[in-house]
Amino acid sequence: MHSFLPITQAHECLRGDLQTVDILPGELWMYYVGIGGHASEPQVRAYLDGTLTLPPSQRELLEHAFEEMVFYP
């Protein structure tokens, strides 16, 4: 599991951060779609669970969506 550290850590961090600030995965997904995201809600949930990898551009957009939700509530 931990042999693919960069991806694993990224999604685990994001999942942890979501729980910390009380944002639901579905809310994150909707915001992410709003700023141009491609992936479906199940794909994003699977990514957060660590069972699916997203393309780098989509991972970056997801991270950015999270940052905007936290910094501009």
């Binding site: 809310e27 909707m30 915001y31 779609v33 709003g34 700023i35 141009g36």
Partner: peptide, 21 residues
């Protein structure tokens, strides 16, 4: 929709982002 109040905002934002892209 599970998050109706966010849906409109997301749709409006997406339209603007798509046009800019």
């Amino acid at each position: 929709d599970p998050y109706p109040e966010h849906l409109r905002a997301a749709l409006e934002s997406r339209a603007v982002v798509d046009a800019a892209v």
